[in-house]
Design a binder for these strands. Structure first.
Lengths: 135, 135
DNA sequence: ATATGTGCAAATCCTTTGCATAGAA
DNA sequence: TTCTATGCAAAGGATTTGCACATAT
């Protein structure tokens, strides 16, 4: 419904990103479906696919995409960053052991009460992680 | 109300932590009040106070404390870990720019609906970060 | 005694950066 | 051309680890 490869270049341009070959490769990989990938995973998959992309470009591109709102960067585990292809408001389950993330549709979480932003501030986003342990 | 220095050794023992001199120093610093500190901040304050503690011991101790439930480790910003002296259920405001954390009392957030844990899993905790931007 | 903790420096892991080359406008 | 992107290797910063010495039971 959103980003067929053919539209990708347009989509990137619309979000202020010059659509180069490497950026299109990274975008088509990550935006193919709702998913959470690390930089290393993305680099690995590109190289499996025979694509030549440097680690620096992967990081540069992911940071650029996150800054332009093409993807969302999740800082969950402290150790490494996860990049989420879903930029719509939503929440996450997180496996305590592996750190793996699963999307939660926004309607699965309803807040009855949230604190107002303190004076001089405004909401910039709500991050909700429900940690799960296997039993 | 909770951990006067005199009780600290008992408290650590009760939670399965051998109360050594370094551990007591770190505990009395961090548990003195509800706060969020990084490992580097803790190391710095101990050394300002003329205490001799190695970086490795600070990290070892913080990890041990977190594993034993003496403190809570927050993985928010991706770059460095924050250690929270408050182990009671509660949530956080987070400054988007600095990453600084502020406690939210649990009664300030009320969930009307939360998803059930998927089969084979159970809740291990709920992390809620409300990101704030200065205006 | 015997197990556990501590300190130091080196090692590791993720991410960023400097700089020369390649590509886009 | 002129500006921006890419690749490579080196640098950077937080955290962990190996090992000898010190401390706890």
């Amino acid at each position: 419904m959103s980003s067929l490869p053919a539209n990708l270049a347009e989509r990137l341009k619309a979000q202020g990103v010059l659509p180069t070959a490497q950026r299109l490769r990274i975008a088509s990989l990550l935006l193919a479906s709702p998913q959470h990938l690390t930089a290393e995973q993305i680099l690995g998959r590109l190289r499996e696919g025979g694509k030549r992309v440097s680690k620096a470009t992967v990081y540069n591109t992911l940071n650029l995409f996150a800054a332009k709102g093409v993807i969302r960067q999740l800082a969950v585990n402290g150790d490494r960053a996860w990049f989420d292809s879903n930029t719509e408001p939503h929440y996450h389950f997180q496996d305590v052991e592996t750190g793996a993330l699963t999307d939660l549709a926004p309607q699965e979480v309803i807040f009855d009460k949230l604190p107002p932003p303190p004076p001089g501030t405004e909401y910039a986003g709500v991050e909700l992680f429900i940690r799960l342990r296997r039993v």
